[in-house]
Design a protein around this nucleic acid. Sequence first.
RNA 1: GGAUCCGUAGCUCAGAUGGUUAGAGCGCUCGCUUCACACGCGAGAGGUCGAUGGUUCGAGUCCAUUCGGAUCCACCA
Length: 897
Amino acid sequence: MGRMSDLNTADTPGTDSPDTPPHSPTAAEDGTPMTPSVPEKPALEGLEEKLSRAWEQERLYRFDEDAERGTVYSIDTPPPTASGSLHVGHVFSYTQTDVLARFHRMRGRNVFYPLGWDDNGLPTERRVQNYYGVRCDPSRPYDPDYTPPQSPAKNQRDWDVISRQNFIELCEDLTVEDEKVFEDLFTRLGLSVDWTQTYRTIDDDSRTVSQRAFLRNVVSGDAYTAMAPTLWDVSFRTAVAQAELEAKERPSAYHRYAFAAAGGEQVFIETTRPELLPSCVALVAHPDDERYRHLVGTTVTSPLFDVEVEVRAHHLADPEKGSGIAMICTFGDMTDVTWWRELDLPTRTVIGRDGRFSAETPEWLTTESARANYGRMAGLTVHSAKETVVEMLREQDLLDGEPTPITHAVHFYEKGDKPLEVVTSRQWYIRNGGRDAERRSAMVERGREVRWHPGFMRSRYENWVEGLNGDWLISRQRFFGVPIPVWYRLDAQGEPDYEAPILPEESQLPVDPAAQPAPGFDESQRGAAGGFVGEMDVLDTWATSSLTPQIAGRWGRDDTFFDAVFPYDLRPQGHDIIRTWLFSTVVRAHTLHGSVPWTDTALSGWILDPDRKKMSKSKGNVVVPTEPLEQFGSDAVRYWAASAKLGADTAYEIAQMKIGRRLAIKLLNASKFAFNLGVTEEHIVHDADTSAVLSEPVDRALIAELRDVVERSTRSFEDYDYARALQLVESFFWSFTDDYVELVKERAYGSRGEDAQASVRAALATTLDTVLRLFAPVLPFATDEVWRWWRSGSVHAAAWPAPEDLGSVEGAPALMSTVAEALAGIRRAKSEAKVRQRTEVRSARITAGATEAGHLEAALGDLLAATRSHSLELVSEGAAGGGVVVSEVDLADPEEG
RNA sequence: GGAUCCGUAGCUCAGAUGGUUAGAGCGCUCGCUUCACACGCGAGAGGUCGAUGGUUCGAGUCCAUUCGGAUCCACCA
């Protein structure tokens, strides 16, 4: 109730700036109400440009940095990938967030609505490389005077090789243009983002936050380094995390061949990866499997490679799969890793980080034929090695039958195009519950502290957390990204000590250990025995993205600021990245702050094309978002987005945008009509109960209904159900224009005297005032356009309407609908007679229940005028209920009308 | 295999805590220059709420089973 009303009285330069449109109201400096100034022909065209400029000038969406926590509503906005392409999905989900932001702003909250850019990661790395023709070598020293080539060299070998810092600077230069395109789109869309609160995930501040968080995690034991088998992408030559996996269906085949057991027994195994035979370390069968029980504890010898391996028992061995006994290799998949770990098996690595079989023949192959056989596959890719092994098995008649083709799921890195291998390497991890039940249940608990919109999305989170099979792998063997800020001491033999990494002081951040010496060392000691080496790996992008609340909130730079916004009120995002962005953010907040990062999260749905297929670039069905914005206007597109509930995958619907456009235009026209009837700001009724002006029952009924709409739409908004709120306001508004306005037109023209006219004006002014504010979050342009015709300031600085503002109007909420039924009855008679609605009615009978008849009686004057009736006979039949029946309509001759 | 969501008029969707003849918009049909709007206005037709059982005085709404669609996770022997 007026919590923000002081904001719209002063300091609004828009009204008298040079950009003021000709029809802008003439602001009265002394605060007296102004005469509405309405254009001849209201239109949506041009509103976006005009109003977004006004909002910027008026600094409407600036976050008040001195605000107290209690008044703040902070949003952990997703940073778009700067080098990514625009998609209607952006328009869709960002609008949904903006609608919520606008609601809370009008509710009096000081909204912190920043927007950052995600320019840290592979997409940017690739784009910068190709655009400039450069490559990053982190060991290069920084060259402050470096300028990239005019055009990239044709041959990649001729590309400039530059330091990480130089690479980061190029990235910052290049993404400026990309970001501009996004900013233009978002501005045009009417996002009420505070554009002074921006960041980039690769800038100094973000790197500092990312490194600080990492260091704190190291100190607390939440981050650690370990040598372990990890999933590895052979094209990108980096380790990848569980969250980045994608299972793809691939054709494959079971190959059946036998190991030789004692006494000449043949033990057949079936495998889709025969090429791993030289790395076999054991066979495994289920302990209860009768077929193999006698073999457990004995050894068998591998075909082709003559390696003696043990037969072991393990409950994970599935008697149903293949022959029921499996070959354990180093490493065919993560199950191999489990067996290797739990059965304490030897390591026999044959596949290198480049995805090829090692060129040297492994020392555990001892027989001459084994070494010869391996020689044929040395240096080959996995694919070729498989062909070679199968060939050799065939040549020596070791293959039992032909390979059986199957289709099975294979793990890929989501950005990669070759199956992942498992290689052993030293990596950094963050404890996320993947190896620790206590942490896991803590993470589930955190998930329950957050309110999910819609609620069922939480089960995806829990599903993911409960299915984790290892800690979060955060190191990447890439060149571009946030460096892992550690160094390692070299002992006298020049071997690094990974157990006690050298950490920088937080005040030194950001650091690049590849280019800067470790604290206490000199650059000349790099790589020397007794000296140090810098960590060369970078952090996974999610390790930085998981800190968007800390980055935008200036954690470590401005604690007062951070405390004012953290934990955030809202995390909006897509439901596809619950396992990555959402979960990792929860993990970081838990380890760094011992709290959830936000109290609520809103999950937007996907955009599907009209055939209900997911829109994606590869399918070529992506709609460029500027098209609908130009064609229908921003409010129309926003209406489409705001009509969809959170979490609901939604079709790209032009029809829905047309409806939104119609609504926005109607709002302009209906408002214009009211103002042309002499409605001004002065007519607004602030308490319908005590208002003597509001004398007509019909008018009071309208306000009573409006009050109900305010109440219910507010409740829906509080519950993050903006779609329902919109629907409530919209249906009220259409019945307002179609029935109420039609009903009171004549009275508004003054046909029934000044008091009756004043009552309409009060109802119209009050309704308009309220409805504009109710629509403002969804239709920011049309509503503010109208607002500026008759009020000072912006509707977006006005307070959200409260039911109390309208008083507790007693009376008949059903009156309006009863009258509308009677109105429709007469209209129907005219329609059926195929005459114009202006045709006069000599007489008609309206039958209704007692209560309804009373309502009609109260509205009779308006009803007569609106239907152009000479006389209406009201018949009360029954107590209440029952429909309103219009009969015996006697229409005048058309000539009379 | 585990989990989640969805299945309501030709289309896109609403239908809190189960309660009188199931709603909206679009589309369709018919009509109308009615002094805000033809980017308009009025009227009409159109649904046994995927199916089958059950709970209940009463179910689109709750339970079970089942069919269909979608998504997430797991699944490389």
